Computed example of a mutant assay.
Amino acid sequence: MPPTDASTDAGTAPFSIADSDTGPGADSEDTLDLRLPDDFLAFFAEEAEAAPAARGAAERGEENGTAQGMARPALATPTGDDLLDRVGDWGPTATSVGVFQLVPVRIDRDLPLISRWMNDPAVAAFWELSGPETATEDHLRAQLGGDGRSAPCLGVLDGTPMSYWEIYRADLDPLARHYPARLHDTGIHLLIGGVANRGRGLGTTLLRAVSDLVLDRRASSARVIAEPDLRNTPSVSAFLSAGFRFSAEVDLPDKRAALMVRDRALRDLL
């Protein structure tokens, strides 16, 4: 499980959102077992049939605690055949620091930039993906060639790729063995590029924006989950400032983590 980290190197390569591609990498070899059990697939089918009623309740503010008269953006329709409700279709969102968008990674375009970020010493200490580009490529292909439970994305701010994100199904991740997971829990891993982007609240702003996107676009998800390394104090602080609450300390195979949770019901209070 990669860490959730809010520090790394800058990326200023030219980028066009029109060039994004959500398809899996061709001829990829999975490094993880990303096949869903049959009983999970059957359960998701039942959930999809019940989704319209749940969406209606959410849009009326019955799930998210929205104050009367304060409308939230319309919630997207769960597709049933996409475990993360098509992250690539979530679109841009306005923030106090500019227009931000999650753009699904395309290996032929994005690998050099992401690999360079992973080789920043401050990042390598937590992500452990430093070395040749093949290390990062294998990590990306394991997700792109899987069943869709994890979506690697570039974070593009005002047209410039400046961060790397993984939006994933926490309830289907090995993380679920270490905390009381709920169906459709959505997890976030984050790596922000650029020394100039560190220490000025950018991570907090984008974490709040992305977790809002999750709650707005995934009607079935009541919580956003993160598990930054406890040693990564700036990352833990950024999550707290972004409306997440500290839930517990958890011992994971590769780290001792702070389990951070942002609840739909508390999103307007924290």
Rank of each mutant, 00 (worst) to 15 (best):
G187S: 08
R169I: 14
Y179A: 02
L172R: 05
I167C: 04
R182N: 09
L157T: 02
P180R: 12
L172N: 03
L190I: 12
I188W: 00
G159M: 10
T160P: 02
D173T: 04
R177Y: 09
E166F: 15
G199Q: 08
V195N: 13
L190F: 12
H189L: 04
H178N: 10
R177C: 14
L175H: 00
A181V: 08
P180D: 14
R198D: 10
Y168P: 00
A176V: 10
L172C: 08
Y179C: 00
T160E: 10
G193E: 02
S163K: 02
D185E: 13
Y168R: 04
P161L: 09
D173M: 13
I188D: 00
D173A: 07
V195I: 09
G199M: 15
L175S: 01
V195M: 15
P174F: 03
M162C: 15
L191R: 06
G193V: 03
Y179M: 00
R198Y: 11
L157N: 01
V195F: 08
R198T: 10
G187I: 12
P180H: 12
L157Y: 02
W165G: 07
A176D: 05
D173G: 04
L157K: 03
T160M: 02
I188S: 01
P180C: 09
H178Y: 09
G199C: 13
M162K: 00
A170T: 04
D158H: 05
L183Y: 11
S163I: 14
G193W: 01
Y164K: 02
H178R: 12
L157G: 05
D185H: 09
G187P: 01
V195A: 15
I167P: 11
I167T: 14
